[in-house]
Design a protein around this nucleic acid. Sequence first.
DNA 1: AGGTTTCACTAAAACGATTAACGAAACTTT
DNA 2: AAAGTTTCGTTAATCGTTTTAGTGAAACCT
Lengths: 337, 337
Amino acid sequence: MVSLKDIASQCNVSVATVSKALNDHSDIGAETKARIRRTAREMGYVPNAAAKSMKTNRTHNLGVLFMDDANSGLQHDFFASVLESFKKEVEREGYDITFISNDRNTPGRTSYLNHARYRRFDGIIIANVHFDDPEVVELVKSDIPVVTIDHIYNDTTTILSDNVDGINKLVDFVVENGHKKIAYIHGADSSVTRTRIITFNKRLEEHGITVPDEYMRESPYRDTHGAYETTLELLDLPERPTCIFYPDDYAAYGGMRAVMEKGLKVPDDVSVVGFDGIKVARHIRPRLTTYRQDADELGLQAAKNLIDLIERPKTTLVKQVVVKGRLLEGDTLKKLN
Amino acid sequence: MVSLKDIASQCNVSVATVSKALNDHSDIGAETKARIRRTAREMGYVPNAAAKSMKTNRTHNLGVLFMDDANSGLQHDFFASVLESFKKEVEREGYDITFISNDRNTPGRTSYLNHARYRRFDGIIIANVHFDDPEVVELVKSDIPVVTIDHIYNDTTTILSDNVDGINKLVDFVVENGHKKIAYIHGADSSVTRTRIITFNKRLEEHGITVPDEYMRESPYRDTHGAYETTLELLDLPERPTCIFYPDDYAAYGGMRAVMEKGLKVPDDVSVVGFDGIKVARHIRPRLTTYRQDADELGLQAAKNLIDLIERPKTTLVKQVVVKGRLLEGDTLKKLN
DNA sequence: AGGTTTCACTAAAACGATTAACGAAACTTT
DNA sequence: AAAGTTTCGTTAATCGTTTTAGTGAAACCT
């Protein structure tokens, strides 16, 4: 590989001059600069990121921690979209992204934090992990700039979907369509789940509807089989709900399968409401009624905020950015009466 | 950050000794070694990947080029699975992965190759790109070890699905179910597409079935709308096909929508056959009849072969690894007669 | 006692860049 | 014309490692 030294000797100048010429410092003469740059191009010079980072203490490389223990990280349509959008934005700013390895049982692995230190990431984005994992907490508490998606820590910038808005919109829509017996299969406990449950109950109460305990069930996020089982339980209740909320779209498909296998129809017998707005759902009939989170905006905000934290630490505040989504009216909700 | 130098002065030994102790060289005494290692741990030492790579000429970082111009890279369920599997395997071997940025119109961007050189990737995996893009070709022709997924170059190791097996299995299955009027909406031209088309025609011929020209249509991969439109054309033919093959599962869903909007039923009026076996399809009814590519195995093979090329260049052959998938019998194929 | 091995460690160069400090012309001032 | 300013480069230190060659002391042999 051709280095500054090669260019220097080719041009009969010092290495320093070459460095300055290529970085457009003002103390190199115009034609010297031009000559050096031309030679660099002709020789096929490419800077060495490692060498550069040693001097500048900046790698222009961001760490991505993006995986739960179900390992559905990249295959999670919604988070893949967020990451895609994040990636696009940071690349525009000259950053690359590298995954923080997450396989907990590889021999010789180190903690997330040590991995991040080893690669000297300038910043880190965290999403879709166990946020109470001590290793994750350690990472968040470190001096490396961090942005989290969809989970609130103190002292950390967070980008999150407007879950309150989402649940409110869905509840309103369902109630407007005449539903009164509404069940909610919610995801496993987390700050997001709690927000959704509270909002769900509160909004229904405002509509004068109380939700019986047996209508509130827990089933993991993105677990179609769990949702399937839980839906069967709901359908066997003496007072069958007319509408079921799901923790996410995948779960909703599991639920719809249960409804169909019971010999019932969606939405004629049971209405179904998802959450997320996964892309593939737009191509499948019946179209799922759901709340589409704005993955692009989430990724964009994560990128912008992280880069601000890195490049302008003095003037950047830690904050929570809430991103609104929108109601997607599909064909899985029946208008009653 | 604590460096070798800090440990050295703490232990009253030279930097060289510390380096050797941590790397377990044989010429450091046992108790010195132990003392140094303990101190390193206590001081929270983490090696600096950049410094290390400068001396060793190895970054233990692999480049990933994984994006077509539709930017459906990460959101492509199938390729996300491949990448996930690839990632897991290389991490086991101590490698990280970094994306080669693909946004062609960011100011100051360099070619894929230059990006790869800048980061000094030890190797590169390429999938789902325009393989005839000059920049991709340049990358493949470079001296950096490369493995491609699903595209054959000379002199490059390729991991590919057994498209011949896939099409044969699907054709056999469809014919066994009594279909004779079989249309094929195939993807845009590529080595994979060509293989599939040739196999499709050949196998049907062996079954004594000739496919009229108007049954062969082209529509881009993963384009639900294109598939929708093309399906409408097929349904309007005087001799409507009884079964339609699609380039992939997404396209198949687009096609199914067209069938339904025509007031026809899948599979009663028109049977539908996909390709890929995307995960979400297992949760949606009707279940798509398709050929499930073994994404995990593809990723695993890509990882193993790439690492072999990097670590054992002398003894590793460039080769083509073919990975079989399996027929997924769903509910979208009707048994005729 | 002198010579040879072995052991445990150090010195120093090198990887490829950046940058503060310095210096020699050349050009302005007064 | 002496002094001050620009202008354009160079020198040398440095980032954190690895590695080759070398060193001195102890241990072994004869």
